[in-house]
């Protein structure tokens, strides 16, 4: 057998595993025995690659898979694997691009795209580090004036998600299937994985203002012009602070001392 450089061997072998066809060169490189042929040997790697990647997607998108059915899901999964092969150290991260890929697949129902996005957010949030900063203590150490001038924001691990399809109930296994039900959700890490809260309109408004950071003073002023009750703002803010959904970006004196 003619010697082949390792670089070319690995390229041929890789292409033979991931491609739709086995390269002749890749095939001939492999030793064959009567009971266990080249084709079978390479077939083990080809099958294992596809099975492993599909299983990873199935684990992260069980409800999407349930609505699509195994055959359709596996077909779309294989297209995704071919179009966007993993470049990640952890296979768990491979699911990241799948919801976006589904948007390019023709004839998928719109609600399913939201289900897939939501399922990925649950996976991502479950892997987020639990917040460790004690926001309550940080704010309690400040005077009332300093508190109002402090910049606060949603913790980076918290995600806001809205959908016209009631995806949270769909993923929980609603027997009614997809029905138009506009929801605005807050997804945050919890000790059990991810906590999902349906927000009322004014709660969504507060969360949206907190998303990129705002002083408490500015938050209060903005919401008062929108007729949101001050006591309700305080109640919501206290609750979210207690749950470490909100964090302090900077305190008043840190803001003043900044160049």
């Amino acid at each position: 057998m003619k010697a082949i450089r390792l670089k070319e061997l690995q390229r041929c072998f890789r292409d033979s595993i991931t491609g739709n066809a086995v390269s002749d060169l890749g095939f001939d490189l492999i030793r064959s025995t009567p009971n266990f042929t080249r084709s079978e040997r390479l077939g083990i790697y080809r099958h294992a690659y596809r099975a492993r990647m599909i299983e990873s997607l199935e684990d992260d998108f069980p409800v999407t898979r349930g609505f699509l059915g195994k055959e359709k899901f596996d077909g779309v999964a294989l297209e995704y694997i071919a179009a966007s092969p993993s470049t990640f150290a952890s296979i768990a991260e491979f699911s990241r691009g799948f919801p976006l890929f589904l948007e390019r697949v023709e004839s998928l129902p719109r609600f399913l795209l939201d289900v897939a996005r939501y399922e990925w957010l649950l996976v991502k949030t479950t892997n987020e580090v639990l917040p460790t900063e004690n926001t309550v203590a940080v704010l309690a150490s400040l005077s009332p004036d300093e508190q109002m001038e402090s910049m606060v924001a949603l913790d980076y691990s918290v995600t806001l998600f809205e959908s016209p399809w009631g995806v949270d109930h769909l993923v929980e296994g609603s027997p009614y299937g997809p029905t138009p039900e506009a929801v605005q959700l807050m997804i945050s890490p919890s000790s059990g994985g991810a906590a999902v809260e349906r927000l009322k309109f004014h709660e969504w408004r507060i969360a949206s203002l907190l998303r990129s950071g705002i002083t408490l003073q500015r938050l209060s002023e903005t919401l008062s012009t929108e007729d949101v009750d001050e006591k309700e703002i305080a109640r919501i803010f206290a609750s979210w602070t207690q749950k470490q959904i909100v964090r302090v970006l900077s305190k008043k004196h840190e803001t003043e001392e900044s160049p």
Binding site: Q10, I17, Y45, Y49, M53, P85, T87
Partner: peptide, 10 residues
């Protein structure tokens, strides 16, 4: 190879 990870021990 080429930044791709096949997640298998080849």
């Amino acid at each position: 190879t080429g930044d791709k990870n096949l997640h298998d021990l080849l």
